[in-house]
Every structure is written in structure tokens, then in C-alpha cells.
Design a protein around this nucleic acid. Structure first.
Lengths: 201, 201
DNA sequence: ACCTGAACACCGTTCAAGT
DNA sequence: ACCTGAACACCGTTCAAGT
């Protein structure tokens, strides 16, 4: 019955995380109360706290789930033959898939992360992993002659992520439509950043 | 005595804003209570609420003050003769002046902004003004032949701000020292983005 | 008008008590 | 073990009462 208990534990926690995510997306992290989460998960406070350590613990679960998605998307970049084609396709997909509420929540989670040491560490490791994954794709692109070989892959990756994060923030404030309109300019900027300007001379 | 009343009003509100800012920088927005602010400002709750509408109202004051600083810094870019020299100097100054706590607070304020319609509008207008100010400097740089004339000034400005915001976010997580180490790469990236790659051919 | 501080409704979390 | 819901300490804000 140990196996069954562990399974119940995981299932109940997933239910709570899902219910909480729904609330957070709709109302934000700080304005959804644990009572809201309890109602959405159809459990009493005591039960919720039996499966979840704290409100912060729920954020931890969401960050981990998000990072798994990002990581998979980035690893697929390393498997592509054409770096820029794959990168631009990924940007298009991000712009097409993301919702305004998702953007708001992820900004809120990012901020929440800063005031709690363990969450901040989690968030820092996630970003470091993202940059490392992307640096690997950059390195492969350099070997294929698609990217300026004189660039440090991790620095190029950091710049690319910075530009993308900055655009996502602008999309959060100005709306996703504006980001879609910005994409061609962003692609040009990224290509210029990463292709040797003297290459065609 | 109307004049004196208005003056007291402004002075007291400034005292509260200053006390609150100190608390926010040290502990963050959500983990400083109004009681903390009252103690720091040496006033009772009733007095604080006599001069300030709400906790959110304090954030509004901080955003407005921040934007005044940013706006002044950007306008000075328009007055420079060499766009990139002035831009790079501004980046160096930002990296030198900013503290880890400031970075954390501004991320937290940005997030807070998203869940309250009036704050979001304020924040959106501030970013729009920042982009517009910078676009003007870009436009002048183009007239002087320092920047690729084929770029749309507002788009180039938006990309520049996006990259800078992204780097500031990385500095928030990884520390300012890392941002200082990144600056040369950021400058190269910005120059490549904004200078016609065929110019020297 | 300016200020006090008790009071209000609500928050995240805990825990004695039930099954 | 799993679950309940009353209770606790604390939050942002208000308001009758004082000067």
C-alpha cells in the first residue's frame, strides 16, 4: 500500500498545482488566496496543506514544469540543420502560442522568485540551463559556418535570450500583437548580431 | 494657510514614499507591511492613510520618480554627438550605479504593475516614452551617418531596450558583476544590430 | 485639519479532533 | 493515513474619537 499512497500523494499534488495554476493565470499569484485554491481543488485547507508545503511550494512546482517545456524546445534547436531557420520557427511558435495571461503570470513568478532564496536558486539554475542549451546550438551553428565563429557561444546565447526576454516583457505590456509585428525586426537584429559582418566582403 | 497645508501634504507624502522605498528595497514590496512603513515613517496608520490612498499608491509614486530619472538620462543621449559613444557610456554608468536590491525591487514593481489596470497603464506609458526618446536619438544618429539609415528608429529603439532589459534581468539573477563582464559583448551586439553590415564593403 | 489606535474583514498556516 | 474546519497570528484599511 506504500505504492498506492505515493501515487495518491502525487495525484493529489498535481490536482492542487493544476487548480492553483488556473487561479494564478486568471487573477495573479498574490491576489489568489489559498482559499481560492482550496475551492478550485475542491479540498479543505487542511487537505491542501497535507500535500503542499506552502503557497511558495506551488510556485516551485510551476517553475519546474515550465523549465521542462523550455528545455525540450531548446534541445530541438540543437538537432536542426539550419540554426536561423530553426530559431526563427521557434520564435514564431512562441509568439503564436503564448497568451497575455501566461505572460503576466510568468513575470509575476519571476519577481516572486527574487525574495526567496531557494526559489531564486531554482530560477537561476533554470536560466543557466537555458543559456547552456542554447550555447550548444550556437556552437553547432558555428561548426556549420552559419554563425560568426569568433563569437563566444555562451555570450551569444546570453544576448539572444536577453533580447527575447526583453521582447516578451514588451509584449506583456503592449500586447502580443505588437510582438508579432516586431518579429521581423527582431530576426534581422539577431541575424546581424550573430553573423560576421565581413563575411560577404 | 492653504499654501502651508498643500506644502505639508507634499512633504508628508514624500516622507512616506521615502520610508516605504527604503523598506521595499530591503525586504521587497509584498513582504513589507504597512505597519513597517508606519514605523519607518514614524507615523500612525491613520496618518499614513491620510496622505496616501493605498499601498499601491506608493508604488505609483515610485514609478513616476523612476521614469523622471530614465527620461533625463535618455534625453542626454539625443544631445550627444556620437551615438554609440554616448550609449556605451550610459550603459557603463547604469552597470556601475545600480545595486542588487534596486534590480530586485524594479522587477517586483514591474510585476506588481500587471495586475492593476491603472498601474499597468502608467508603466506602459513610461516604456512608450522611453522608446520614443531613444528613437529620437537613433534618428539623429542616422542623420549623422552613425546608424544604418534603413532601420526604423522606433523598432531599433525597441530592440535596444529589449536587449538592455533582458541583460538587467540576467543581472538580477546572476549578479551585477556578471553583467559588467557581459557589457563588451552587449556593445558589440548593439553595434552590429544598428550598423549597416555592408557599409564597409 | 491633523492625528490616534482600536476595530474590521481577510490572509496563510496549524492543529486538535474525527474517520 | 487522510481529512475537517475552527483557531491563530497577521495583513491592508477604516473610522469614531480626540486635539
Amino acid at each position: 500500500m506504500r505504492a498506492r499512497d505515493l501515487d495518491l500523494n502525487r495525484r493529489r499534488k498535481d490536482m492542487i498545482l493544476e487548480a492553483a495554476a488556473t487561479c494564478f493565470v486568471k487573477q495573479g499569484f498574490h491576489s489568489t488566496s489559498m482559499k481560492d485554491v482550496c475551492v478550485a481543488a475542491a479540498m479543505s485547507p487542511g487537505t491542501v496543506y497535507h500535500y503542499v508545503r506552502s503557497k511558495t511550494d506551488i510556485i516551485r512546482g510551476i517553475i519546474e514544469a515550465d523549465q521542462a517545456v523550455t528545455s525540450a524546445l531548446l534541445r530541438s534547436l540543437s538537432e536542426a540543420d539550419d540554426f536561423f531557420a530553426a530559431l526563427f520557427a521557434a520564435l514564431d511558435r512562441i509568439a503564436a502560442d503564448i497568451s497575455q495571461d501566461d505572460l503576466a503570470l510568468s513575470a509575476e513568478i519571476s519577481a516572486e522568485t527574487l525574495r526567496q532564496a531557494d526559489l531564486q536558486k531554482l530560477s537561476r539554475l533554470a536560466l543557466a540551463e537555458t543559456v547552456a542549451d542554447l550555447a550548444r546550438a550556437v556552437s553547432l551553428g558555428q561548426e556549420r559556418g552559419q554563425i560568426d565563429a569568433s563569437l563566444a557561444p555562451d555570450q551569444a546565447a546570453a544576448m539572444l535570450i536577453a533580447l527575447l526576454d526583453g521582447l516578451l516583457w514588451q509584449a506583456t505590456l503592449f500586447g502580443i500583437e505588437r510582438m508579432k509585428a516586431q518579429l521581423p525586426f527582431a530576426k534581422q537584429a539577431l541575424a546581424r548580431m550573430m553573423i560576421d559582418p565581413d563575411r560577404t566582403c
